[in-house]
Computed example of a mutant assay.
Amino acid sequence: MNGPDWSDYQAFLAIARSGQLARAASTAGVNPTTMGRRLRRLEAKLGATLFEQTRNGQELTEAGESLLVAVEAMAAAAADIPETSGEGDGLSGTLRISVSEGFGSWFLARHVPRFREANPQLTLDLVANSGFLSPSRREADIAVMLSRPKVGPLTARKLSDYALRLYASPDYLAGREMPERPSDLVSGHVLVGYIPDLLYAPELRYLDEIHPGLAATIRSSSITAQRRLIANGAGIGVLPCFMAEGDERLVSVLPERRITRSFWIVTHQDTRQLARVRAFNQWLHESVRTYRHQLLPGT
């Protein structure tokens, strides 16, 4: 009997990373029937059950856990082949970067084209939404997160601090008294913020740091939507300075009440030495140093 095809191993890896057969099929661009057939073929050739079906999807068996280590090493080696196959052509392959919505949409979106121009053979996937893909599950090559992960086979390095302040629009403030102290926000003002039970990171709880008990009455899971609401006169809200400074539609409120958070750059231990991962890490650290004034105004 011939050994398993590499496509079968790729199917196994996709299911292991996503935890769901249907999600893995969607990511791979095949239908779930094809993905399931590849998995059954691999299990038959190996003589082992690799997943258990649970309410939440597929969970690795002990045999699956052992195979995952070997297949991830194979995938990492395969991913590195095009990077070293030619001289002077720059990086190639695909680099998937998971970032918070604000950092991805407002900071990286401004600067990442320079990295891509230097590496025209490289495909960049910029996943900027509410939540993070997991480097430990190989859902992303790099993640820029709001805290340092405490578990997993990961390498984490602090990228930068960044500042946040309260902002409002001139239209909203027209006819209202400008708040002079945090307690002025308790009544007489509309606050814009996150939906508490949809927060994907505790670092996004801001209003209690401004004044205990403050609560938003116009809420969104999207920081981009919050920014637009504030700019359109809906109320006062906390925004990262890199999203708000320089916009004439936004005015700083209680500017002395500055909140500081941090970005951490996270990679899997097994893939952090890939050329494209190393190159992007270096480029991102250099870009953050160059544009530090956008992240931390006044420094």
Rank of each mutant, 00 (worst) to 15 (best):
W6R: 12
Y9Q: 01
I15F: 07
A16T: 11
R23W: 02
T27A: 15
G29F: 08
V30W: 06
N31Y: 08
T34N: 10
T34A: 13
G36K: 13
L39H: 10
K45T: 09
K45R: 15
G47H: 08
A48D: 11
T54N: 04
R55M: 05
G57Y: 02
V69C: 01
V71K: 08
A73G: 14
A75P: 02
A76P: 03
A79N: 11
E83Q: 15
G86K: 09
L95W: 13
I97E: 03
E101T: 03
F103C: 05
F103G: 02
R114S: 06
Q121C: 08
D125H: 12
N129I: 01
F132S: 05
S134E: 14
V151N: 10
P153M: 04
L154S: 09
L154Y: 04
L159C: 08
S160W: 03
A168V: 04
D171W: 00
D171Q: 15
P179T: 07
S183F: 13
L191E: 04
L199I: 10
A201R: 06
L207M: 07
L207C: 03
I210N: 01
L214N: 02
S220C: 07
S221D: 12
S221A: 15
T224S: 15
R228S: 12
R228M: 04
G233Q: 05
G233M: 03
G235V: 05
G237Y: 01
G237T: 05
L239V: 05
C241P: 00
F242E: 02
V253D: 06
V253P: 07
L254Q: 04
L254A: 08
P255E: 05
P255I: 07
W264S: 10
R272H: 04
A275S: 13
H285Q: 09
S287D: 11
R289P: 00
H293E: 14
Q294T: 07
P297K: 12
P297W: 09
T299F: 12
